[in-house]
């Protein structure tokens, strides 16, 4: 629990941290790029000159889009996680719970196996499109199945249980497809479900940027209704909250944030779970703070993770999803005894 001054300090700290981690993740790699080169590259880019040298081109075409994509995806996943935890009033929930990530994985797996048979209509967008569609379908399925049975008070539980079932279906579809797949396809499926940012491009940044801004912008407006949910659904309704509508809104935002982000980078687990947790330890559970800071910390978290993924086994690259879990989980376990939920 922090005073207003300390809250401000946390925010400034997060902003500075974000800036530093973006600069570092753009600078460090197989070729290291100095800050002067970054500035001159951006300058030349703005003036629309073509005479960029090799380092400047690496920065503009590879590093910068990747660093920005990291920021956007991290922010999206962490915000999605805070929304889910607040909606389900459960600190162990993450965005994958209502089928979004596993649906995306199933869509992507289908693409890897069947893609060659499909007419290539959307060129490089076919994979993101397939996984995004999978995510949307799975989430929509969860929502409609869970609201079919009519007992309004318990439908958050229904949402949770339906989510688990749909997750199981999607994951078994992924399993089946990897079993059926020939070797290179199966490897693609495996890599994709561990996440990678190596495919970052300016187009991916543009599309993810749009979904992230829309999604997070809308999420801010839900902070108050979500706070009342901490008292329970009954109390929230007595305060004038339309629970059914809130639930649908959160699901839609969730799809916008997580489906689009996941479709470009694959499944990255743990960010949506650990980031809201860390923040709760830091400044309590007020969703007004949590949602805003989760976006910032999520971005930092994923930027640092991506840096580590690139540097650890240099020049090879570790799948980022493995890194977020392998580092995130022990840190999380160390911090858990310090939580004060009571």
């Amino acid at each position: 629990m922090l005073s207003n001054k300390k809250r401000r300090l946390v925010e400034i700290g997060l902003l500075v941290g974000l800036l530093i981690s973006v600069l570092f993740s753009a600078g460090i790699g197989a070729v290291s790029i100095q800050s002067e080169e970054m500035f001159s590259a951006i300058q030349k880019f703005i003036q629309n000159k073509q005479n960029l040298n090799l380092n400047e081109r690496i920065f503009m075409e590879i590093r910068l889009p990747r660093a920005l994509l990291c920021v956007l995806v991290g922010a999206s996943l962490a915000t999605g996680g805070s929304l889910m935890q607040a909606l389900f009033r459960n600190p162990i929930v993450e965005p994958g719970l209502i089928g979004t990530s596993s649906g995306a994985a199933a869509g992507a797996a289908l693409y890897f196996v069947m893609g060659a048979q499909l007419p290539v209509l959307f060129s490089t967008y076919t994979l993101p499109l397939a996984s995004c569609l999978g995510a949307m379908l799975a989430t929509a399925l969860v929502f409609f199945l869970s609201s079919a049975g009519e007992s309004k008070s318990s439908s958050t539980t229904a949402l949770l249980l339906t989510g688990i079932a749909v997750n199981a279906i999607c994951l078994s579809a992924v399993g089946f497809l990897s079993y059926m797949a020939r070797d290179p396809q199966a490897r693609s499926i495996t890599f994709w479900s561990m996440g990678t940012l190596s495919g970052a491009s300016w187009k991916a940044v543009g599309i993810t940027g749009l979904s992230t801004i829309i999604g997070i912008g809308y999420a801010f407006r839900l902070a108050h209704p979500l706070n009342t949910l901490m008292l329970g659904e009954q109390e929230a309704m007595l305060l004038g909250i339309r629970i059914q509508r809130l639930r649908l809104t959160i699901l839609i935002i969730q799809v916008i944030l997580v489906a689009v982000a996941t479709s470009f980078v694959g499944v990255i687990s743990f960010v949506g779970l650990i980031v809201p947790h860390l923040l709760r330890m830091l400044h309590g559970s007020d969703n007004r703070l949590l949602i805003r800071n989760a976006a910032l910390l999520g971005a930092i978290f994923l930027s640092v993770a991506d840096m580590a993924a690139r540097l650890w086994l240099k020049p090879a690259e570790l799948p980022i999803g493995i890194l977020t879990s392998i580092v995130g989980a022990p840190v999380f376990l160390l911090l858990l005894p310090k939580t004060n939920y009571f």
Binding site: R89, M230, G240
Partner: peptide
Amino acid sequence: SQQVDLVFPMQVEEVVLMGRYP
């Protein structure tokens, strides 16, 4: 109603302020 418990920690004045959310 009967006692309500919060799932996540929150400060007393924040809980009171929830009454003003409408």
